[in-house]
């Protein structure tokens, strides 16, 4: 590892601060990750194959598929998988539909000030503590929330609309939380399309919508794939949104994990649910990273 082959010297990065051995630089970070990331996560995976005992966190070594069998045979659990995936798909599609136009405006606006302002707004709303944003959502959408309150005051409705503590509320919450990620994925993809392509199509007789359909949209597909998968992975992994906006009535995989542990204390089974969740989101994320690499032409 410390010796470079002749080929590596020829093709490697140019000399700079690269003494033959730079391992001491990365060593602290790597040790940290091995100790506090790889070992814990792999142990968790191992635990998921252990026989479940309520309230016990020890590794018994009784290897079994029991936990996984339970997940896929009991409706309660496989419905949670189904629910998570369904919510993830709905959220990604909604984010795409409402995020694409804003990304397009940011990428194509002629006023650089507008683009910068909008980008900062999107970035800031992405970075703001989720729980704080959910506070706003809940004040808005609760039975006594601003919407129901206002509509009742105006005499439009007499009974509050069920906006929260159901699938609808969870979807709206997840869209709010994940939308910035979709927009940021799309801006890059749309920006990288040379505006001359759109103008060329216009001059050949295309209307604005036809250009959108035949030129802009197909060329922005890498960003569309990346954004959709990223949002999907984030949506199915979220615990706090279904917990608050669903009020524990919408049971997704992360909710299950927490319930198994906090309420029933079945660690081994919770671990198995976690593995399933991880594999699903890893699958989406892997495709996401591949799409991103293709998008960036291998620069990532």
């Amino acid at each position: 590892m410390t010796e470079l082959t002749a080929e590596q010297i020829d093709t490697g990065p140019r000399s700079g601060w690269q003494a033959p051995n730079l391992w001491w630089l990365v060593l602290p970070a790597v040790l940290f990750l091995i100790l506090f990331f790889l070992i814990p996560v792999l142990s968790l995976f191992a635990t998921s194959f252990d026989k479940a005992f309520a309230g016990v966190i020890t590794f018994q070594g009784n290897l079994t598929w029991d936990n996984y069998e339970r997940i896929f045979t009991r409706a309660l659990y496989y419905k949670a998988i189904y629910k998570s995936v369904f919510l993830g798909v709905a959220v990604s599609l909604i984010c795409l539909v409402i995020g694409y136009p804003l990304a397009y405006v940011i990428a194509r606006t002629l006023r650089p000030g507008t683009a910068t302002l909008l980008t900062i707004l999107v970035l800031a709303s992405m970075q703001l503590d989720m729980v704080i944003r959910l506070y706003g959502m809940m004040v808005l959408m609760g039975d006594n929330g601003l919407i129901n309150n206002g509509l009742t005051a105006l005499g439009i409705i007499s009974e509050p609309l069920p906006l929260m503590y159901n699938d609808f509320g969870v979807v709206v919450g997840l869209v709010q939380v994940t939308l910035p990620f979709m927009i940021l994925s799309l801006i890059g993809a749309i920006k990288s399309i040379n505006p001359a392509l759109e103008e060329a199509a216009r001059s050949l007789g295309s209307s604005r919508w036809h250009v959108m359909r035949t030129i802009t949209w197909p060329l922005s597909l890498p960003g569309v794939y990346a954004g959709t998968l990223l949002v999907f992975a984030l949506a199915i992994s979220s615990y706090v949104v279904p917990a608050l906006m669903g009020g524990w009535k919408v049971i997704t995989l992360p909710i299950h994990i927490y319930q198994q542990i906090a309420e029933v204390g079945r660690w081994q089974f919770g671990a198995a649910v976690a593995v399933i969740l991880f594999l699903t989101s890893l699958f989406a994320m892997t495709i996401y990273i591949l799409a991103l690499r293709r998008n960036a032409g291998g620069r990532v």
Partner: peptide
């Protein structure tokens, strides 16, 4: 008139060949 109604042909500096 918008560009598509003018019946003109334009060639750009970077040619703008649709890459897809």
């Amino acid at each position: 008139l918008p560009p598509e109604k003018r019946d003109i042909g334009i060639v750009f500096q970077n040619y703008a060949i649709f890459p897809h």
